[in-house]
Deep mutational scan, measured.
Amino acid sequence: MDETGKELVLALYDYQEKSPREVTMKKGDILTLLNSTNKDWWKVEVNDRQGFVPAAYVKKL
């Protein structure tokens, strides 16, 4: 969790967005987890953008 109590995830792999609903991340990025109710796609925030990334590409910290 960060200082505001939000849950964080670590990008395990690079991911290039394939639609406007997704976000690009690089391996090693720390992202804010917004929603993990879907087992396949998690909603995150990175670089002031919100979108989805494959759940298998990130790990909760």
Rank of each mutant, 00 (worst) to 15 (best):
L61D: 03
S19I: 04
L33A: 02
D40V: 15
D29C: 07
G5I: 12
Y13I: 09
P54H: 02
K18M: 11
F52Y: 15
D2F: 12
E7W: 13
D40I: 15
N47A: 12
V23M: 12
P20G: 08
N38S: 09
K26P: 00
T24Y: 04
Y57C: 10
E17L: 07
I30W: 05
D2A: 14
N35D: 15
L8N: 05
K18E: 07
M25A: 02
S36I: 06
P54E: 01
V46L: 15
P54A: 02
W42K: 01
T32M: 11
Q16I: 15
K39Y: 08
G28T: 02
K43S: 07
E3D: 13
R49Y: 05
N35V: 08
A55V: 06
Y15C: 02
K18W: 04
T24A: 06
V44F: 00
E3W: 09
Y57P: 01
L34Y: 04
W41Q: 02
D48H: 12
L12S: 02
L8P: 04
K6A: 10
L10M: 14
S19P: 04
K6L: 11
K26C: 11
W41P: 00
Q50N: 07
S19R: 08
K43D: 03
K59D: 06
R49A: 06
M1Q: 13
N47C: 13
Y15T: 01
D29G: 04
Q16K: 13
W41V: 02
M1T: 13
N35L: 09
V9L: 12
Y13S: 08
E3A: 14
V9G: 12
G5C: 15
A11G: 03
P20Q: 09
Q16M: 12
M1Y: 14
E22T: 08
G51K: 02
L31A: 07
Q50K: 11
D2S: 14
E17F: 06
G28Q: 02
W42H: 02
E3G: 13
E3H: 14
L31Q: 00
F52M: 08
A56F: 07
Y13P: 00
Q50G: 06
V58G: 01
F52I: 06
W41E: 04
L34S: 02
R49K: 10
D14R: 03
L8M: 10
N38L: 08
A11Y: 01
K43R: 10
K27Y: 04
G5M: 12
P20N: 10
I30N: 02
S19D: 10
W42S: 02
E7A: 11
Y57D: 02
T4V: 13
T37K: 11
D2C: 15
L12C: 08
F52P: 00
T37E: 14
L34K: 05
S19C: 10
V9Y: 10
G5V: 15
R21W: 15
E17M: 13
V23F: 13
K26G: 04
E3T: 14
G28C: 10
E7L: 11
V46F: 15
M1S: 13
K59T: 13
E22A: 06
S36L: 05
W42A: 04
V44W: 01
V53I: 08
I30C: 06
D14G: 06
G28A: 03
E3N: 14
I30L: 07
N47I: 10
L31R: 01
M1P: 13
S19Q: 08
G51F: 09
G5H: 14
A55L: 02
E45N: 06
K26L: 08
T32G: 08
Y13N: 07
K6F: 12
N35P: 03
S36R: 08
W41L: 03
E22D: 05
Y57F: 12
V9D: 00
E3S: 13
V58M: 06
L8R: 10
F52G: 01
L33Y: 02
K26I: 07
K18D: 05
A55P: 04
A55D: 01
E7F: 11
G28L: 02
Y13R: 15
Y15R: 02
K43Y: 15
L10K: 07
L8H: 09
K60W: 07
D29S: 07
E17S: 15
Q16T: 14
V44I: 07
E45R: 10
V46I: 15
V23N: 03
G51H: 02
V58L: 15
Y13E: 09
V23K: 01
E22P: 05
A56G: 10
M1L: 12
D2N: 13
V53P: 00
L34V: 12
K6N: 10
Y13H: 10
V46D: 11
D40C: 14
L34P: 01
A55W: 02
E7R: 12
D48I: 05
T24K: 04
T4F: 12
L34G: 01
E17H: 08
V46K: 15
E7P: 10
L10D: 01
D29Q: 15
S36M: 09
P20A: 11
E7V: 15
K27W: 03
K6P: 13
I30Q: 04
V44L: 04
E22Y: 06
K6V: 13
V53L: 02
S19G: 12
D40T: 14
W41N: 01
V23T: 06
N38I: 05
Y57R: 06
V23E: 00
I30D: 01
G28R: 03
N35I: 07
Q50M: 09
